[in-house]
């Protein structure tokens, strides 16, 4: 293990990483969010969705540095006396959870179908790729919106809807890589051993098509978080009992013009920061893993 770590710190990848300001800032932002979200309940002043801990007396408190700010509520409170910082931490947790869950599911499903389509070709390939083409010809947001409108709000439903929208990306990329790999001689060598398609796909093809997925998956987390925020803002995303950052923006927007600008603006800033960090990281990975740029 120590040897491996050592090799990693001396690798070209690590060398380029520490010299890329964008990549390092991206990582710092993402790590900041992860720490905030994982340790959230331990340090936030309240659980914003435990009605018992709310006090209407605290409502309409502005951020700390403004006239009438309260040190207990650094970013102020909303109209129900909910601490905005706590709400953002819990909201980020939901946003990130949805992002990661959707990406993992999409990746598994997309890779599965991409492998099958690319390796076997023929009719299976034609059918699968037509499905992908059709789906890609609708705006992802529209498809998700339609699914959510039909099935109603819910965290699980939202994840399913976003996965249905997202898997095609992986399927298409994996299929493309498989088409290249399956014609390489090492796959012929595996066939000559006598291996049947399944072990060839799993042991020989799959490990060689994963690299581009790291890049796609990273950037996809950002996209999913944005889509989720939009859907929640439109009122078809997460339920009110589990508000994500997007829903916080929406809740804040309702009272924006009654002077509570902070309860809409701060969640928005956090969405922007999180997606920005993820994209910085994704851009770096893309540059590193794209052989054409080398």
């Amino acid at each position: 293990m120590g040897k491996k770590m050592n090799a990693f710190f001396r690798s070209e990848f690590f060398h380029n990483f520490v010299r890329s300001a964008g990549a390092v800032s991206g990582l710092l932002i993402v790590v900041f969010f992860l720490v905030m979200v994982l340790l959230g309940p331990a340090w936030t002043p309240q659980n914003p969705y435990d009605i018992a801990s709310l006090d209407l007396m605290d409502a309409y408190k502005p951020p700390l540095w403004m006239e009438g700010g309260d040190p207990a509520f650094v970013l102020g409170t909303d109209e129900q006396g909910r601490d905005l910082l706590s709400a953002i931490v819990y909201g980020s947790r939901i946003s990130l959870f949805i992002g990661v869950a959707v990406v993992l599911l999409s990746c598994v499903i997309g890779t599965f179908f991409g492998l099958i389509a690319g390796y076997f070709g023929g009719r299976i390939d034609s059918i699968l790729m037509r499905v992908v083409d059709i789906q890609l010809s609708f705006p992802a947001m529209l498809v998700a919106l339609f699914i959510m409108a039909a099935f109603g709000r819910g965290l699980g439903k939202l994840i399913v809807a976003l996965t249905i929208v997202g898997w095609v990306l992986y399927a298409r990329t994996v299929r493309g890589s498989v088409l290249v790999e399956r014609n390489k001689e090492y796959v012929d060598a595996a066939k000559l051993i006598g291996l049947s398609p399944f072990p060839i796909i799993v042991r020989h093809v799959l490990p060689n098509v994963l690299t581009p997925l790291i890049v796609i998956a990273t950037i996809h987390v950002g996209t999913v978080i944005l889509t989720e925020a939009t859907l929640s803002y439109l009122g078809v995303g997460v339920p009110v009992t589990e508000p994500s950052l997007g829903l916080l923006v929406k809740n804040g927007y309702d009272v924006l013009f009654s002077g509570l600008w902070w309860s809409s603006v701060f969640p928005g800033v956090f969405i922007m920061l999180l997606v920005f960090g993820i994209n910085l990281l994704g851009d770096f990975l893309r540059d590193e893993f794209n052989p054409r740029l080398k």
């Binding site: 390489k184 001689e185 090492y186 012929d188 060598a189 595996a190 020989h204 490990p207 060689n208």
Partner: peptide, 9 residues
């Protein structure tokens, strides 16, 4: 095989 770069996984 012909291509020593493509013939090993």
């Amino acid at each position: 095989f012909q291509d020593p770069y493509a013939s090993l996984n």
